[in-house]
Design a protein around this nucleic acid. Structure first.
Lengths: 130, 130
DNA sequence: AGCGTTCATGGGAATCATTCTCACAGATGC
DNA sequence: GCATCTGTGAGAATGATTCCCATGAACGCT
């Protein structure tokens, strides 16, 4: 999963820095447009490559719902997200019980080398008020 | 989510019948090819429309991982999947604890109208043996 | 059964995200 | 500074999904 050594370039730093400023999940296309606005333009293909690399290194999370994939900067430890359906705001949450539950259920069915992905969607307080 | 009344057509029945015969998740393209082999051909666009309708009615589950979406016939009650990474075989599992956990965590952060999606991936016993 | 309305179909074009190609630029190591 | 080798970028290519629209088939009614 973690690939060999990465070369540090202006473009990769730009993508990561931009992600740090974002609150919720952003698509590759969004990031590309934002970078262009911001002044330090990066090729679209490069944005995709940078995101793939960051994903391999566990520095971003990906969310594939409808159509396009969305990325978000995240802590490198395992966790899940609470995502607002309407504004995209996200909260990282840990879930010890689910970890154990997943491992147990998988074992019961003879599955090994287990991973899981869990996303919780809802409407956040701010959006519900509207 | 559940749309208006649906018209019952040969094509929709064919898609649903085919899904009933499948074991794991299948992409729309796969289903289209299988239907063609089987004799009762259905247009690709129609396969997509049928799957979308079935999805709205809660009769199939969708899995969006890499590239294309995969669909599978499922029971209409809420549940999750244990999916073999290598052969695609799936097992439906219920998870009362996660339900409660998700609801509680969401409430703590002021989120309402909560939904969640959880998939567990692993290598099934048969595939691990190889 | 006949009929009209309305929704579904299909095939090819259109869309859209993502990946590939390849010549060139820049990072890294010495 | 230099050689090497990976990263970049623009556009083409790919591939899944959706749109368009003329034709066909359900459904409700009589």
């Amino acid at each position: 999963m973690t690939e060999g050594p990465r070369r540090q370039t202006r473009q990769r730093s730009a993508v990561l820095a931009l992600l740090d400023d974002q609150d919720g999940f952003r698509t590759a296309q969004d990031l590309h447009a934002l970078l262009r606005e911001r002044g330090d333009a990066v090729g679209l293909a490069t944005v995709y490559r940078a995101l793939q690399a960051l994903l391999d290194d566990g520095l971003v999370d990906v969310l594939r719902t409808e159509g396009e994939a969305a990325y978000r900067r995240c802590s490198p430890v395992h966790h899940h997200h609470l995502v607002c359906r309407s504004c995209g705001r996200t909260v990282e949450v840990a879930d010890p019980p689910v970890e154990r539950w997943a491992a147990r259920v998988a074992a019961e069915h003879g599955f090994a080398d287990v991973q899981h992905q869990l996303e919780v969607f809802g409407t956040c307080a701010a959006c519900a008020a509207r």
